[in-house]
Design a protein around this nucleic acid. Sequence first.
RNA 1: CGGGGUGUGGCGCAGUCCGGUUAGCGCACCUGCUUUGGGAGCAGGGGGUCGGAGGUUCGAAUCCUCUCACCCCGACCA
Length: 489
Amino acid sequence: MSKNTTIQKENFSSWYTDIVTKAGLADYGPVKGTMVIMPYGFELWDLVKNVLDKMIKETGHVNAYFPIFIPKSYLAKEAEHIDGFAKECAVVTHTRLKSDHNGDINVDPSSRLEEEVIVRPTSETIIWSMYKKWIQSYRDLPLLINQWANVVRWEMRTRLFLRTSEFLWQEGHTAHATAEEAEEETLKILDLYKCLAEDYLAMPVLTGLKTEAEKFAGAKKTYCIEAMMGDKKALQAGTSHNLGQNFAKAFGVTFQNDKNEEELVFATSWGVSTRLVGAIIMTHGDENGLRLPPKIAPIQVVVVPIFKDEDQKKAIKSFIMNQIQDLKNENIRIYEDWSDRRPGSKFNHWELKGVPIRIEIGQRDILNEELVLYRRDKNEKSNIKIDDFVNIVKKTLRDIQTNLFLEAKNFQVKNTHNVKNFDEFKTVIENEGGFIKCGWDGTSETESRIKELTKATIRVIPFEQDIDQLKCIYSNKKAKYEVIFAKAY
RNA sequence: CGGGGUGUGGCGCAGUCCGGUUAGCGCACCUGCUUUGGGAGCAGGGGGUCGGAGGUUCGAAUCCUCUCACCCCGACCA
């Protein structure tokens, strides 16, 4: 247990904030709702980013960069889109400051912009305004572009990584000649996201469709990956949208097909954000702090030498030197902590930071030709022979990766409930939390009524559907879908 | 925007009701010595004008007025 850190079981959200700041992932910025991503947190994001960037490129996409400033009028071109984002836009109205006689700095009224500019909350509009220029013929399609960028959504209530006024993400925007192709793209990306979440972040996700109420503003369909956090609440961890021809219509993006006919382009967009860092923390963290999956841990192995004087320090160095080099040659991210703090303090420090493996070496171990290996996922120590060091470390890193996933998966399964009726639904949501899998009649009335009564929302309509005998949990009518309800972040 | 709360060294707090020595404590920080296999001990040391403005008073962190900021709960959301 880290000193002065909130107990996870007692207050999950306060535990979360404690861990984020104490582990050196992020800090609050001076403007409400902003955050500074600190070096350790940024390295973590960078590793996630690199994995996904590679996947995106391997599937034929290329990166580009579009401006952060968008003409206000662009946002209004797609009706649903503006409805969804109008309430949270930062707007640039002036371009100059000036200081008065008292030395106060004020906006210079004479610098008012004729056409105000908004700071992008997402880039569909500016990108489609450009696509109009770039797309003429079916030979220009598909157009598969991704960008890594910051976006701004002026949120009322913010939390580090999970919801901040400005955040980092990737947003893909593709243009296709046919509806089928766009749908295929949307699902392909969803699959990448699932792979990223499960194989790298060790975070099991449910995949499927969002309801009309939950889908992206301006999309025809929104698919998502949805995960369960340590407090059993749901977190939307990534979305992939089939935009149909909505944006092509709004921006007049047409192409000539091979029969010389003019057609509207089909679009997709998709994104994951720094929210994933929050997801990692809340999926795996325990009372001692973070537990990072090895594949994306900034430090995979930390070496803590235990010495009384300079001679012992030297002895440890020469004892372990070659092995450390071997691990570095294998591209394992290793850090040696030679600072003069006491060992116990270092143990706690690196546990808080979630480093998957810690190696302890003292005189005792040198004599026995051994090392102590501690694995963060199970909080267990074992003695290993120095000769086996490299192999065991590599194997243990793989084990930890697998084990973290399985632990999270078991947790998700164990906390996914079936309920017989709406009374039981309410009881479970209120007392136990977690996911509820049940029938829904498909009406937005039922959906919003359940939300009012329980605060639970439909997180996802899973791909696998079994509705033969299924009744709607609320209306008791024949179910149209089997869905997952939960309280969400 | 509605309800609740908090502003005192870097962080966490006490002191405020009932005004009165030099504003105190824990953590962190610095120096030295002893320590080092689960958050070390001792000694010494640096750092705050009490969110801001105005007022009452011989005297204000404390009382009064105004103001600002932030946090929590609700409506909105990746």
